[in-house]
Design a protein around this nucleic acid. Structure first.
Length: 220
DNA sequence: TGCCAGGGATTAG
DNA sequence: CTAATCCATGGC
């Protein structure tokens, strides 16, 4: 049978249940987490966020005032801590310059996304994490799991391996209703599926290993 | 024990 | 525009 994006979403939701993303107490915490989780396991990010909270450093004002070395030490668990210290402080400078959440909240989505992409260390996925999960705008977040899962399912843009980030994003946004709540849950479910089952190696052996695989019978 | 994790910037061809 | 390399800790 041929799967549709809505069909895949229904199966993922039935298999895994609502994910309740983003795991954060405030929009600013979402933004910090989005930068810290780049190519990094979320459990490592949790440690760093807790350490920031314990020091009362989880605000743009406090973060920009830290010395590189003292912030890097707290960010150690996330890996790439020197890089991420610079990225987080660059982001906080921008955030304060723009006037913080109350001002950014009034920006149209394309302007917000474009401005985020201008911040060093904020690439397309991190920008969309922020736009979707901190500002609740309907942009679809693409990550490695998305490309891998939908590439294997035979969905997504033509030439999936070479397709650019925006090509993938456009595909999802054109084939689904423009709904921030749907995009929120869908991306979270894709990550959950990727973590649990669709590993890079061995090649999607889930259907042979797991009776309740959401794609049993349709997994390529 | 090697591989992978909710990427992005930089450099080389 | 595509490919390779660097960044670095922690779980399994």
């Amino acid at each position: 049978m041929s799967l549709t994006l809505q069909n895949v979403y229904d199966r993922l939701l039935a298999e895994h249940g609502p994910q309740g993303w983003w795991p954060a107490e405030t929009p600013f915490e979402v933004m910090v987490g989005a930068i810290l989780t780049q190519n990094t396991a979320w459990t490592n990010v949790e440690r760093a966020i807790e350490a920031l909270k314990a020091r009362q450093w989880l605000s743009a004002e406090m973060l920009v005032q830290r010395e590189h070395a003292e912030l890097a030490e707290v960010l150690r668990p996330v890996g790439y801590f020197n890089v991420k210290t610079r990225r987080l402080q660059a982001f906080c400078h921008w955030y304060l310059e723009m006037g913080g959440y109350p001002v950014l909240e009034t920006w149209p989505t394309p302007a917000l996304r474009g401005a985020l992409l201008g911040v060093t260390g904020v690439g397309p996925e991190t920008a969309d994490d922020i736009v979707l999960y901190a500002f609740e705008r309907p942009v679809f977040v693409i990550d490695a799991y998305t490309r891998r899962l939908f590439g294997r399912l035979g969905l997504g843009p033509a030439d999936p391996d070479r397709a650019a980030y925006d090509t993938w994003r456009d595909y999802f946004e054109r084939h689904l209703p423009s709904d921030a709540g749907l995009f929120n849950e869908y991306h979270a479910l894709i990550v959950k599926q990727g973590k649990d089952i669709c590993r890079p190696k061995p090649y999607c052996s889930a259907c042979a290993l797991r009776a309740s695989c959401a794609f049993a019978g349709d997994c390529p």
